[in-house]
Design a protein around this nucleic acid. Sequence first.
DNA 1: TCAAAAGTGTTTACCATACACCCATGT
DNA 2: ACATGGGTGTATGGTAAACACTTTTGA
Lengths: 230, 230
Amino acid sequence: MDEDLKHRSFYPLSVDCVIFGFADNKLNVALIQRKKEPFKNHWAIPGGFIEESETLEQGAQRELLEETNIKDVFLEQVHIFSKPNRDPRGRVISCAFYALVNPKAFNILAGQDASHVKWWPINKLPKLAFDHKLIFDTSLEKLRQSIRIKPIGFELLEEKFTLTEFQKLYEAILDKKIDKRNFRKKAAKMEFIKDSNEITSGKKARPAKLYLFDPVIYKKHSQNGFYFDL
Amino acid sequence: MDEDLKHRSFYPLSVDCVIFGFADNKLNVALIQRKKEPFKNHWAIPGGFIEESETLEQGAQRELLEETNIKDVFLEQVHIFSKPNRDPRGRVISCAFYALVNPKAFNILAGQDASHVKWWPINKLPKLAFDHKLIFDTSLEKLRQSIRIKPIGFELLEEKFTLTEFQKLYEAILDKKIDKRNFRKKAAKMEFIKDSNEITSGKKARPAKLYLFDPVIYKKHSQNGFYFDL
DNA sequence: TCAAAAGTGTTTACCATACACCCATGT
DNA sequence: ACATGGGTGTATGGTAAACACTTTTGA
């Protein structure tokens, strides 16, 4: 290592992942119950320390897999939390991410440091360890902003989805009712939402058309800025 | 320090500040010329290492003052850059910020590690050290998004400003022409832009009304989400 | 035949856009 | 008087918002 670096202060660096999942028309978050002190038995956002040769993104994916059995999902940086006393063990600087997950695609399992993992509806969270309430609030706010600018909503749905599912997702994230007919008119104008020519089956009601997201068409349109005004 | 922490990997952590300033109807960035290796004589985004008892935000403000003589300005986190080999001296993880500055309020001065500081128009930057081109591009993109969601534009102007200045600022940041009459109609509808009942003087043309930003009124309006559609 | 969710059009009010001339001041 | 930037209104087209009934399926 360079001489210049040797005289600097060094810090342990962690990542914390707010895992959002959409199920039963609700937005949920996966939390773990801690096995160890500090905050033993408290619920917490999964996370852990960065290792020597990985980026923060790689570290976050690794921790996600180790702690919850969730693999290879969409991640976005939210914010760094750096208050010197935010962790009672000593100074830990943490980078928050949110992860977007289709909950049906994974069977969440508690890893070594956790006694349980569980999906919680975002409006009924338990008391959280450390400054994780702040991390959660910041992440949800960031999600609400990003969902209007980028097509991240599709990460929370199945590959093929109905317009009703799509609408309920936006209603859950933005926490407001949206008019069905107006929503569909806007969706129809988004050319990157394509009819898959398939329909649902096995439901107790009229089948619905299934749609797909086309990332190539999206890229073209998003060049000049884009705003999902819903 | 806690036993648990002792066994972790530790990293030097730095901040880099992309300093935006608005002058002569142009958006500029303050860069420093490095005195030392690596990248000796290259132009770079000012920044430095975090100390033991400061947050990243405090560290960024300190570095800004030490390296450029800019003090106590608006700062926003942009992104963390964590590729293990991004710094040839060894692993350095860096958090990028942008700073918004009214250039008339400061006389920028080179600190110890720099031979010069200089404002550069954003479309005529020199070759930059490290991964600072990537950091700059990411920061500009973030600024372009944030300026539509939050009233950060006012940080780049004087306390009292004319509507023409306000318009030129948006044109510079978004890099597009905006119709004067339509812009003014929209500005008139923003209740947090208040007439100061003063006018400019000493110009070679008709004096202009001066306006003020009212943060209290803004807070009220921004609760339900906000989008500067210009 | 009933329950459950899918699907569909019209009207109204507002807002974005495009566009060109007169006004107040300093020199 | 002229150069410089400040300031203003209208017509048009498009889109957001509000609103209720019919259709298709499974039970």
